[in-house]
Computed example of a mutant assay.
Amino acid sequence: MTRSNRSRKRDAEYEPLDVERLTGGFRRSEVRKGREWTVQPISTSNATKVYICPGCSLEIAPGVAHLAAWRNDGILGDAADVADRRHWHDACWKVS
């Protein structure tokens, strides 16, 4: 009799793969110039608008992977911080 490679764990709950999270990247926190920032990578498939990068003042075209960053420590609260987020080229964010 041949051996099956299938798992015999039938009680384990199936958790569907979150493809958007895998392709979009993982949100993370970074500290820059003494301030805490949330950084969210934006994949090429999720980049649907035109933005101006605050690092180089050049356009980020639709379909170009980039990142969005916003402060974590604003005095007006989380909603205001997210509303004030900016979209950066990856390279511009690294040198800022």
Rank of each mutant, 00 (worst) to 15 (best):
59 E>I: 01
18 D>S: 05
11 D>W: 09
15 E>M: 15
96 S>E: 06
87 H>Q: 09
3 R>N: 13
88 W>A: 00
68 A>Q: 03
77 G>N: 06
91 A>G: 05
48 T>K: 09
81 D>H: 12
2 T>V: 15
17 L>S: 11
81 D>C: 14
57 S>W: 08
88 W>N: 00
12 A>K: 08
96 S>C: 14
57 S>Q: 12
13 E>G: 09
47 A>W: 00
62 P>Q: 07
18 D>Y: 04
11 D>I: 06
63 G>P: 01
10 R>E: 14
67 L>Y: 01
46 N>M: 08
81 D>R: 12
79 A>Q: 13
55 G>C: 05
26 F>R: 15
75 I>L: 10
38 T>C: 13
37 W>D: 00
29 S>R: 08
50 V>M: 07
15 E>R: 15
73 D>I: 09
14 Y>S: 06
60 I>D: 00
62 P>T: 03
86 R>D: 04
33 K>V: 14
63 G>I: 04
82 V>I: 14
46 N>T: 08
44 T>R: 06
70 W>R: 10
51 Y>I: 06
85 R>L: 12
87 H>V: 02
62 P>F: 04
62 P>V: 02
38 T>V: 11
70 W>K: 09
86 R>N: 07
21 R>I: 06
15 E>W: 13
44 T>K: 10
17 L>P: 02
54 P>G: 03
17 L>M: 11
34 G>E: 03
48 T>M: 09
58 L>N: 09
77 G>R: 05
94 K>E: 12
45 S>G: 08
82 V>E: 03
76 L>T: 12
72 N>S: 15
13 E>L: 09
77 G>I: 02
93 W>F: 09
48 T>V: 12
47 A>S: 07
29 S>P: 01
25 G>F: 00
63 G>F: 01
82 V>C: 08
52 I>W: 03
17 L>T: 10
65 A>E: 05
22 L>Q: 12
14 Y>W: 14
26 F>P: 03
47 A>T: 02
1 M>Y: 10
43 S>F: 01
58 L>H: 11
46 N>L: 03
71 R>S: 11
3 R>K: 15
17 L>V: 14
2 T>H: 13
30 E>Y: 08
71 R>P: 04
90 D>W: 02
40 Q>I: 06
5 N>L: 14
10 R>N: 13
31 V>P: 05
34 G>A: 06
21 R>D: 06
10 R>C: 11
59 E>W: 01
25 G>D: 00
59 E>K: 03
56 C>I: 04
48 T>P: 01
7 S>A: 06
88 W>E: 00
92 C>V: 05
52 I>D: 05
92 C>A: 14
49 K>I: 07
54 P>C: 04
91 A>C: 10
47 A>R: 02
26 F>Q: 15
75 I>A: 09
95 V>S: 12
14 Y>V: 07
85 R>H: 05
65 A>G: 11
93 W>L: 04
35 R>K: 12
56 C>S: 07
36 E>Y: 11
73 D>W: 08
21 R>F: 05
15 E>L: 15
95 V>M: 12
47 A>M: 04
1 M>P: 14
15 E>N: 15
18 D>C: 06
55 G>T: 02
50 V>F: 07
46 N>W: 03
66 H>D: 07
59 E>Q: 07
51 Y>V: 01
37 W>P: 00
13 E>S: 11
15 E>I: 14
43 S>M: 03
20 E>F: 10
60 I>M: 01
52 I>F: 06
23 T>K: 09
95 V>N: 08
1 M>N: 12
86 R>M: 13
